[in-house]
């Protein structure tokens, strides 16, 4: 009885879980750029490149999934390197809009190389369908697990400390002899590699890809994973991706009011936890206050610091 119940739950939410894992990877791809103080929205574009390269290899050359994933990630990484060299000189929202522009250029490009000399390339707006489903749940678990391992290693390394120094203040970091440009390029290329790989996995999960999935909305959605979840440690984007992917599914009973409640939850979450849901300082405070009478909500007290 219980096993039947759990099996049903698993069957209903397996796909949601898989999308949440893909979202986690994408969130991490934004997280790594945010860690170096870069506001990049290029992940959706990189994901698109990865998805198409991987899917085309699988369809035309029948490559194994691993080969497609590596090729897709590599393609996105190379584009990331070429794009990063000029645009990473921009900062803040100027970089954000330049990377959004990159995403739009990729989208239009994918729409227009629908076929060359009679052979279907991207299929334009019709997209590519009949992509074999090769991504298994455990592939994604493993993929995100590997990323976590990578980020834990980075945290403990010179590179991680350099990233943090750059995010805190890149002028100071530069004056301490950290090669800011090089580290930022590294972060940007890593971000592209991760998003490209995630794109290949997702293409082999949904049987279908089309250019519009990776436009402006896609880019903003990925950014919200990292901001809502928190971009201070790697756990943040993963939590953000899980919540933002599961929330609309769990709110299905609300029918047409679903987006409204979704929006309300977003606002409340960010107001009470402005540094993201995974905010180590906040949770440490909560942990210390456990057992004590909860009369003054800890959030309110933290806001008193405002001038």
């Amino acid at each position: 009885m219980l096993t039947q119940f759990l099996t049903d739950i698993w069957l209903v939410y397996r796909s949601v879980f898989e999308f949440a894992l893909i979202g986690s990877a994408l969130g991490l791809s934004i997280y790594i750029t945010l860690r170096t103080g870069l506001l990049s929205l290029a992940s959706a574009g990189f994901m698109s490149i990865g998805a198409y390269v991987g899917a085309l290899l699988t369809i035309h050359l029948h490559t194994p999934l691993l080969v497609s994933v590596l090729a897709g990630a590599l393609a996105a990484g190379v584009i990331g390197l070429l794009l990063g060299l000029p645009v990473l000189r921009l900062s803040g929202v100027y970089l954000a809009i330049a990377t959004i522009g990159f995403g739009e250029v990729v989208r239009v490009f994918m729409l227009n190389i629908d076929n060359l000399a009679g052979r279907t390339i991207t299929g334009g707006a019709l997209g590519l369908n009949n992509i074999p489903r090769k991504t298994e749940t455990w592939h994604l678990v493993l993929f995100v697990g590997l990323l976590i391992y990578l980020f834990v290693r980075i945290d403990r390394s010179r590179t991680g400390r350099a990233f943090d120094a750059i995010r805190q203040d890149h002028h100071v970091a530069a004056s301490m002899g950290i090669n800011v440009v090089q580290y930022r390029n590294l972060a940007f290329v890593l971000s592209a590699l991760i998003a490209g790989a995630a794109g290949v996995f997702s293409a082999h999960l949904t049987y279908f890809v089309s250019p519009n999935e990776y436009g402006f909305n896609g880019a903003v959605r990925i950014l919200t994973f990292a901001i809502l979840g928190g971009y201070l440690i790697w756990l943040g984007p993963i939590v953000g991706a899980f919540i933002l992917t599961f929330l609309p599914e769990l709110l299905r009973f609300l029918g047409p009011y679903r987006p409204i409640v979704n929006g309300v939850v977003l606002i409340l979450a960010i107001i009470y936890l402005p540094r993201g849901l995974v905010d180590p300082t906040f949770w440490r405070k909560v942990w210390r206050q456990r057992g004590k009478p909860p009369s003054p909500p800890p959030l309110e007290t933290s806001s008193e610091a405002a001038p």
């Binding site: 950014l223 901001i227 979704n262 929006g263 309300v264 606002i267 960010i270």
Partner: peptide
């Protein structure tokens, strides 16, 4: 953070 709350507000 304002991006999130503005997206939430926009959805609503």
């Amino acid at each position: 953070a304002a991006i999130i709350s503005s997206i939430g507000a926009s959805t609503i």
